[in-house]
Design a protein around this nucleic acid. Structure first.
Length: 687
DNA sequence: GTTCTAGAAC
DNA sequence: GTTCTAGAAC
C-alpha cells in the first residue's frame, strides 16, 4: 500500500487512470465538483454527464459507458457525472475498472433540503430539473439511495456531508498528478445504527473462528478479550459524530444554505485570505508553498481548531495550488482546507462558521483600498475602526494584530465573528509603497512571518478562550455568585467570550433539552470533533486526548500506516500503540497473553484491569450481546484499587514488585472459569 | 494510556 | 535513605 507522503511514494506505474463516480442527488454539486477538479488538475479528466451526452441533451447509460471507454483508451481519467444513487445503476460503470484503472466513488451526501433548494433555484441546468418538480424528484431519488460499498468493486469511496468535506475532496482529486493514485479505502462514512451492529458482529465472529490470532510476544497462552472503553452503560455501538440537538433545518427556513452541520459551530475556526498575492502581487507558487508549510507547522498546536484559506471563486489559482500542495503533504483536510466564499459572509451565505477572520490589512490599518481590507472594514463598520485604533496605529510587514470585535459590531452579530486579525504581508507591487523590488529572499521571509504572526494571533485567542471557559466552569462548580474578574489587558476578551458562550447556549436551548449547561462549559480545545459523547443516560462525557488515539486511527487508518496491519470496511487491525493494552475510546478487541510479566505493567490499576471482574472476556461479551443486544461494563471503580492477587493461585501481595516476583515463578494451574468456554486459546504447541 | 513527583511506607 | 504508591498533568 502506498502512502502519499509528499515524496514519490505514491507513484505506481506510468499514467494510472481513475474512473470517479459521483454519487448524489440533483443539486448535490456533482457538476461543480467535476468542474473544480478539472480546472485545477494536472491530470486530464473527462466529465461524462448523462444529461448532456446526446448532443447536449439527455442520453443513455450506454452512451455514457461508450464515452467513458473511449476516454480511458486515450489515457484520460473520467468523472461519471450522474446520480448513481443505487447499486444497480453503478454496476455497469464499475466494470470499467481494471488493474490499471481504479474506480472510485465520491458521495455527495448533503442535506436533502439543500439539494432540493438548489435544484429548485437553478435555471438552465443541463438536466432540466427546475422549479417545483425538483423537490419531488429529489425526494423520490433519495428514498431509493443505497450507499456505495467497497464490496461493489470500488477501490476508494469518499463520503462528503457538507461543503467543507466536499472542498476537501476536491482538493484531494485536484492534487492528483498524471501518475499518482490515492489510497484505497472508505473515507468519511458516518455510521448508521442498524448496520453497525452487523459490522461488529461480523468482526466478533472472526475472533471466534478456528484459528484465533496469537500474541507474538513472550506468551504461553493467549485469550481474545474485548475491551470497551465506555465506563458506564456501554453498548456495542460504534462511535459517531455527536449530533447537536438543533439540526440545521431551523435556519434553512430563512433560505440559507446549510451545508455545514451545526456541529461545526463549536469548532474554533480561522478564515484567512491569501496574503500579498492580490494587490501586492506576490508569486503564487511561492506563496502557496509558504501557506502550506506554515499551516503544517501550526496545525499540531491548534488542538481541534481549523484553518481555512478563503477566496472568492472556484477559479482561484491560489486555492487550487494550496489544495494540491496540502493534499500532497497529506495535511488533515478536516483541520485545514480551502473554501470558496466571501470572508465577510461565510456563516450566513456559505454555512461555514468562523469565529475569527484575518484581514489582509494595509500598514496604516485604515479602511478603504480594495479587496478584503475594504470589504471587512465596510462590513464591520465604525466598531472595527475604533477597536483597531485601541490596539495599534500601524503594522510592519510580517506582523499581525488581534482585534476583538465589540458585540455591537455587525460582523459579530450577523456572522458570529469574535475577532479580526489584521495582518500585513510583503509588497511586490511597484505601484504600491515600500515595494520589495522582486527581492523574493526577503519577500518569502516576510510572508512566512506574516502567516506565523497570524496563526500565533489565532492561537492566543484560543488560549484566552480556554482560560475563560475553564474559569467559568469552576465558577459554576463552586456556585460562585461573583462576576468575572475585570482584569486589565485581556479582560475585555474574557468578557466577550463569556458573551459568546451565552449566546451559543441560548441558541442551543431553543426548543431542545437542558444539556446546554454542560455543553457550553466544556473545554473547547483538545477534544475536537470527537471528544464529547452523549451517553444513553443523557450525560455528556469528555474523553481525554490520550484516549482518542483509536478514534483518530479509526477515522483515518490510512494515515497510520506504521501501526495499522489491515483496514476492512468496519474494522482496523493494528499493533497496540502501548505495549500494555489501554482503555481507549472506540470499541476494541485485544489479544492478551496470560504471563502478565511485562515491564509496562506497573501499577495496581494496570494489574486489576486484567485480573478482576473489571476485565470482560470476549466470550462473555459476545454471549451477552447475543442475548441482550448489548454488553455492559462493570461500573465499579473500586475493582481497580483492590488488593493485588496472583491470577493463578490467588495469593495476595503487598505491592507490585513483590507480586511480579511471585508471578514469575507461580505454576499453579489457571482458575477453572478461565479454562471453560474457550476463554483461553492455546498458542502454538507450547503450554 | 504514560510521566512526574510528593509523601507514605518501610 | 530508599522504595513504592497515588494523584495530577499531559
Amino acid at each position: 500500500m502506498e502512502v502519499d507522503d509528499g515524496s514519490e511514494a505514491r507513484v505506481e506505474m506510468k499514467g494510472k487512470q481513475s474512473v470517479v463516480m459521483l454519487v448524489g442527488a440533483p443539486g448535490s454539486g456533482k457538476s461543480t465538483f467535476c468542474d473544480a477538479v478539472i480546472g485545477a488538475s494536472r491530470r486530464t479528466w473527462v466529465r461524462i454527464c448523462q444529461d448532456t451526452i446526446g448532443n447536449g441533451k439527455a442520453g443513455t447509460k450506454a452512451q455514457c459507458i461508450k464515452s467513458a471507454l473511449s476516454a480511458l483508451n486515450e489515457g484520460k481519467s473520467v468523472f461519471i457525472d450522474r446520480c448513481n444513487l443505487d447499486r444497480e445503476q453503478r454496476a455497469e460503470f464499475l466494470k470499467l475498472g481494471s488493474a490499471q484503472i481504479d474506480v472510485h466513488a465520491v458521495v455527495l451526501d448533503l442535506p436533502t433540503q439543500l439539494c432540493i433548494s438548489r435544484s429548485v433555484k437553478r435555471t438552465g441546468h443541463e438536466g432540466n430539473l427546475q422549479g417545483g418538480k425538483a423537490a419531488a424528484v429529489v425526494n423520490r431519488m433519495l428514498q431509493k439511495k443505497e450507499s456505495p460499498k467497497l464490496i461493489e468493486g470500488f477501490s476508494r469511496i469518499t463520503f462528503c456531508h457538507n461543503d467543507a468535506e466536499v472542498q476537501a475532496a476536491m482538493g484531494t482529486y485536484s492534487g492528483l498528478g498524471p501518475s499518482d493514485s490515492l489510497l484505497p479505502g472508505c473515507f468519511g462514512q458516518k455510521s448508521q445504527d442498524a448496520k453497525v451492529q452487523v459490522g461488529i458482529m461480523k468482526f466478533l465472529k472472526k475472533a471466534e473462528g478456528p484459528s484465533p490470532v496469537v500474541s507474538k510476544v513472550n506468551s504461553d497462552q493467549s485469550v481474545a478479550s474485548i475491551g470497551s472503553s465506555e465506563k458506564k452503560g456501554a453498548s456495542l455501538e460504534r462511535e459517531e459524530m455527536p449530533v447537536l440537538p438543533n439540526a440545521p433545518q431551523k435556519e434553512e427556513s430563512k433560505g440559507k444554505d446549510n451545508a455545514v452541520q451545526a456541529i461545526d459551530k463549536d469548532v474554533p475556526t480561522l478564515a484567512f485570505p491569501s496574503i500579498s498575492t492580490a494587490d501586492f502581487q506576490f508569486n503564487l507558487e511561492k506563496a502557496s508553498d509558504i501557506i502550506v508549510e506554515t499551516v503544517e507547522e501550526f496545525l499540531p498546536k491548534l488542538g481541534n481548531a481549523r484553518l481555512v484559506l478563503v477566496d472568492l471563486t472556484y477559479e482561484s489559482k491560489i486555492l487550487s495550488l494550496v489544495r494540491a500542495k496540502a493534499a500532497k503533504k497529506s495535511i488533515d483536510s478536516s483541520k485545514f482546507f480551502t473554501f470558496v466564499g466571501n470572508i465577510i459572509e461565510l456563516s450566513t451565505k456559505r454555512a461555514l462558521h468562523c469565529n475569527v477572520i484575518a484581514n489582509a490589512a494595509n500598514w496604516r490599518l485604515r479602511p478603504g483600498g480594495g479587496g478584503v481590507n475594504a470589504a471587512i472594514f465596510k462590513a464591520a463598520g465604525a466598531d472595527l475602526e475604533m477597536a483597531t485604533n485601541d490596539r495599534a496605529k500601524s503594522l510592519v510587514p510580517g506582523s499581525a494584530v488581534v482585534v476583538p470585535l465589540p458585540s455591537t459590531c455587525p460582523l459579530y452579530n450577523r456572522e458570529g465573528i469574535t475577532h479580526v486579525i489584521h495582518v500585513l504581508g510583503p509588497n511586490m507591487n511597484p505601484q504600491r509603497p515600500n515595494c520589495l523590488n522582486n527581492d523574493y529572499n526577503k519577500g518569502c521571509m516576510v510572508l512566512r512571518q506574516a502567516y506565523t504572526s497570524l496563526f500565533e494571533g489565532f492561537l492566543s485567542i484560543l488560549k484566552i478562550q480556554e482560560t475563560s471557559v475553564t474559569k467559568r466552569h469552576e465558577e459554576l462548580l463552586h456556585h460562585s455568585g461573583r462576576g468575572p474578574d475585570k482584569s486589565v489587558g485581556n479582560g475585555d476578551l474574557k468578557n466577550k467570550r463569556d458573551d459568546v458562550d451565552a449566546s451559543d447556549s441560548s441558541k442551543k436551548s431553543r426548543g431542545s433539552g437542558n444539556e446546554v449547561e454542560i455543553d457550553s462549559t466544556r473545554p473547547r480545545t483538545g477534544n475536537s470533533d470527537s471528544g464529547i459523547q452523549t451517553t444513553d443516560r443523557g450525560m455528556t462525557k469528555a474523553w481525554g486526548s490520550w484516549a482518542q488515539a483509536f478514534y483518530h486511527i479509526a477515522m483515518h487508518p490510512e494515515r497510520q500506516k506504521d501501526d495499522v496491519l489491515e483496514i476492512l470496511e468496519d474494522v482496523v487491525v493494528l499493533n497496540d500503540l502501548y505495549p500494555k493494552a489501554p482503555s481507549m475510546r472506540q470499541l476494541h478487541l485485544h489479544v492478551v497473553s496470560q504471563d502478565f510479566n511485562s515491564v509496562h505493567l506497573k501499577n495496581k490499576k494496570h494489574w486489576n484491569s486484567f485480573n478482576t471482574a473489571f476485565f470482560r472476556d470476549s466470550v462473555d461479551v459476545i454471549e451477552e450481546v447475543n442475548k441482550n443486544g448489548k454488553a455492559m461494563m462493570k461500573d465499579d471503580k473500586s475493582l481497580l484499587s483492590m488488593e493485588l492477587r496472583c491470577h493463578r493461585c490467588r495469593s495476595a501481595h503487598p505491592n507490585i514488585p513483590r507480586l511480579k516476583s511471585h508471578i514469575r515463578n507461580c505454576q499453579v494451574p489457571f482458575p477453572a472459569f478461565l479454562l471453560q468456554s474457550g476463554r483461553l486459546v492455546r498458542a502454538l504447541d507450547s503450554n
